[in-house]
Nucleic acid binder design. Structure first.
Lengths: 348, 348
DNA sequence: CGCGATGATCGAAGCGCTTCGACTGCCGAG
DNA sequence: CTCGGCAGTCGAAGCGCTTCGATCATCGCG
């Protein structure tokens, strides 16, 4: 009576595949999910039918029946002062890795606020969440605990207990930079940081780097300054001026602000400081940026790709019901290039 | 016998709402969709129940029953040489606008290739697509025509017939820059463009700008050059050197490459050219960048937000079955700031 | 030679929603 | 009054998939 093809012409359903392969729909489903043993012959036949019919399961139907949407949310607040290209490296890595697990990625910006998270949860649109740019005291976190969807944070809040967090170990990164400079004999160093807004917001990675930097400098008895830096050339110029005025014999600089790297080098030159002869510079940034600078910068890599991949892997394991470590801190790796050298002998 | 609450405890269904409000499930559905008249009283009662129970319809179930997922795909290839922050402005605008239409946004990178598009289509995960960074001869386009999902392109391919495209009118933008310079009396001008890879890929916006620039320059009898420019400081320096060597009396410069704006200004200074006294500079870039430069740049704004919004609106109309214009070219608007001035008198 | 175990497959019952036709009062026109 | 029509609501039939028994051979073993 009713024709078996639905009104949206050309839509292949599991029933079409089943008929084509001469099996029951459930068998097709089991072939696809592997949740029951299927004989090799049948499996092959079904897979062939799937291929020739170009069958793709209806995402909504699957989500309804299985309680799994195979979609994860990427919550990506784009806040002032953050370096967008780096953020996108994370995002791309998340999407790519998610696809390896047959998941798609839903993009959420922060504009929706907590209601957005609640909606995701209740509507079962996504199975889990990955949150980026976590603040030390992030408003999303209490909410996140209410929901029973698994989530992974890229970055660390002040109270990471019970949450799954991944990030570069920025505290160590700050230390590693100091360590490298100290080993080269530098005794007076400064950190040029992210824009002020980033610190004021309480963004973990910025503060941690600074703390690591200052802590180890103190331990090693180095004279050290650290402060934010805005992104326009004038501000950079000015900031360098300040730093050099306060510490005329400064020889080591750490920069943790992707946007100002080139400008910083220019400003040093403008102040008559050669890199690395007079001042050594260590950057914390993606390799691409460090390599493109002149001179190529000694740097601690921000392993965006690895962090993104890791975040997805952890989320998948949580979705599968496995236990996962609360926090994964990736160890920083410093690559020596042309911007650091032994400290010049102090002028007499 | 079977308890009426599903195993996932705490999940509120339309049935719960119906019972709470003392109506049939279908009535709740009609309240939500507005597809049938519901008396004010009932509507109010239902809405109240929805609120107190904090009900959100199950996305999968809705997609299954209504053939609409309320999700759109944003296909965002991240290719070499593109300026990520600008791209993200588009993306954010798309997400924000989509939410106004109660749609969510699925993020696709290019890595999946054509199969990704096919999968989106067949699995009914998304209702429509927005494609970014369209190339003149984009491989995704023939495929797009096969699918019967509505789509909107941000950017223009070589053959836009039958496709819905939105973008800034880059051809006009190139012209507007020349026009402005010509009006100020400049007779010798050059365009500093995007990295070579962008042109070679056949990215429409880059080529169109260049063509508009050269066409109007020819018409107005200006001496004009145009060429790509890589993103590192050394390349910029070198490029500026070349241009000035070839055209020592050049006084007008258009830059269409967000990444090199600051470096370009520095390079001009290094070559002893003051801006705007010796050389006038017009940029094609977001306002933020133009304002932050020193001096603040006369610029043609890239209206990322408007383009994104427009793209979503068009897609929504197509989804609703309305006819929409094939191409929407937003007119460029030039804002005069401090980087352009009347051409200096030719040296005698 | 019979019987429980095992492997492979099927059928049917939902998952939570939308939508279509049917039903019920109630109003105004005849 | 009576009855067609309409506003407002209900019930039930799916949407395409997963999953849980149930079924049916087949097989090893006592």
């Amino acid at each position: 009576m009713i024709p078996r093809r639905s009104q949206r012409t050309g839509v292949i359903t599991i029933l079409d595949v089943a008929r084509h392969a001469g099996v029951a729909p459930s068998t097709v489903s089991y072939v696809l999910s592997g949740k029951r043993t299927i004989s090799a012959g049948t499996r092959a036949r079904v897979l062939a039918s799937i291929r020739t019919l170009n069958y793709h399961p209806h995402a909504g139907a699957r989500a309804l029946a299985s309680n799994r949407a195979n979609v994860i949310a990427l919550v990506l607040p784009l806040r002032a002062g953050m370096h967008v290209p780096v953020v996108m490296q994370f995002a791309v890595s998340v999407v790519t890795t998610a696809r390896e697990f047959d998941q798609d990625v839903l993009l959420m910006t922060a504009d929706e606020g907590p209601d957005g998270l609640r909606r995701m949860d209740a509507s079962a649109l996504v199975d889990g969440l990955i949150l980026m740019d976590v603040e030390l005291n992030d408003a999303r976190i209490p909410l996140l605990c209410e929901l029973d969807r698994p989530s992974v944070l890229i970055g660390f809040p002040a109270e990471p207990d019970g949450l799954t967090c991944v990030d570069l170990d920025f505290y160590r990164a700050g230390q590693v930079c100091v360590e490298h400079l100290a080993r080269l004999g530098h005794r007076e160093v400064a950190l040029i940081g992210a824009p002020r807004a980033v610190y004021e917001r309480g963004t973990g990675f910025a503060r941690r780097t600074m703390t690591g930097f200052l802590d180890l400098a103190a331990t090693l008895n180095l004279a050290a300054d650290a402060g934010p830096c805005e992104e326009d050339p004038v501000a950079v110029e000015q900031r360098v001026g300040e730093v050099l005025a306060r510490r005329p014999s400064l020889t080591g600089l750490v920069v943790h602000n992707e946007a100002v790297v080139d400008q910083l080098l220019a400003a040093l030159l403008a102040h008559g400081r050669r890199v690395p002869e007079d001042v050594s510079v260590v950057a914390i940034c993606p390799d691409g940026l460090a390599l493109r600078a002149t001179p190529a910068l000694t740097s601690v890599l921000i392993p965006a790709e690895e962090v993104g991949t890791q975040a997805v892997r952890l989320l998948m394991r949580k979705l599968a019901g496995e236990a996962v470590p609360d926090s994964s801190l990736l160890p920083p790796r410093l690559t020596v290039r042309d911007s650091t050298a032994a400290a010049p002998l102090p002028a007499r």
